[in-house]
Amino acid sequence: MAIVHWTGVYPALLTPFTENDQLDIPLFLKNLEAQVEAGVDGIILGGSLGEASSLANEEKAELLRHAREFLHGRIPIVVNIAEQTTRAAVRLAQEAADGGADGLMLLPPMRYKSDDRETLEYFKAVATATALPVMIYNNPVDYKIMVTLDMFETLSALPTIQAVKESTRDVSNVTRMINRFGDRFKVLCGVDTLALESLCLGADGWVAGLVDAFPRETVAIYRLVKAGRVAEAVSIYRWFLPVLELDIHPKLVQYIKLAASRTGLGSEVVRPPRLVPDGAEKQQILAIIDQALATRPVLPE
Rank of each mutant, 00 (worst) to 15 (best):
I3W: 13
W6I: 01
T7L: 10
P11C: 05
P11T: 04
A12S: 14
L13M: 15
L13K: 09
L13Y: 07
L13T: 07
P16I: 02
F17Q: 03
E19P: 11
N20C: 12
N20V: 15
Q22I: 10
L23H: 07
I25H: 08
P26F: 08
E33W: 04
E37Y: 07
E37A: 09
V40D: 00
D41R: 02
L45M: 08
G46M: 08
G47V: 04
A52T: 02
L55S: 02
A56C: 11
A56T: 11
E58M: 11
E59W: 10
K60P: 15
K60C: 10
A61T: 12
A61M: 15
L63A: 00
L63Y: 09
L63R: 00
H66T: 07
R68S: 12
R68T: 10
E69S: 09
E69L: 09
F70C: 01
L71M: 05
I75G: 03
I77E: 02
N80R: 01
I81Y: 00
I81G: 00
Q84G: 14
T85A: 01
T86F: 10
V90I: 14
A101D: 04
D102V: 03
D102C: 05
L104V: 01
P108E: 09
R111N: 15
R111T: 14
Y112Q: 12
K113E: 11
K113T: 13
S114F: 15
R117F: 15
E118I: 04
F123V: 09
A125V: 02
A127H: 05
T130K: 01
L132Q: 01
V134E: 05
I136G: 12
E153V: 07
E153K: 15
T154P: 12
A157F: 14
P159L: 02
P159M: 07
P159C: 06
T160A: 06
T168W: 13
N173S: 11
V174E: 02
V174P: 05
T175F: 10
T175K: 12
I178E: 11
I178T: 02
D183I: 03
R184K: 05
F185T: 00
K186V: 03
V187A: 05
G190V: 03
G190S: 05
A195W: 06
A195S: 05
A195L: 01
L201E: 08
L201V: 04
A203K: 00
D204H: 15
G205Y: 10
A213S: 13
F214T: 03
P215A: 00
R229M: 04
A231M: 06
A231C: 00
V234Q: 13
I236D: 02
W239N: 06
W239E: 05
L246S: 01
D247P: 09
I248E: 06
H249D: 12
V253W: 10
R262D: 09
G264Q: 01
S267I: 05
E268T: 12
P272M: 04
V276R: 14
V276L: 11
P277Y: 11
D278Y: 13
E281D: 08
E281G: 01
Q283D: 13
Q284E: 14
A287I: 07
D290I: 13
A292F: 08
L293T: 04
T295Q: 13
T295N: 13
T295H: 15
P297I: 07
P297S: 09
P297C: 12
L299V: 02
P300T: 08
P300C: 07
P300V: 07
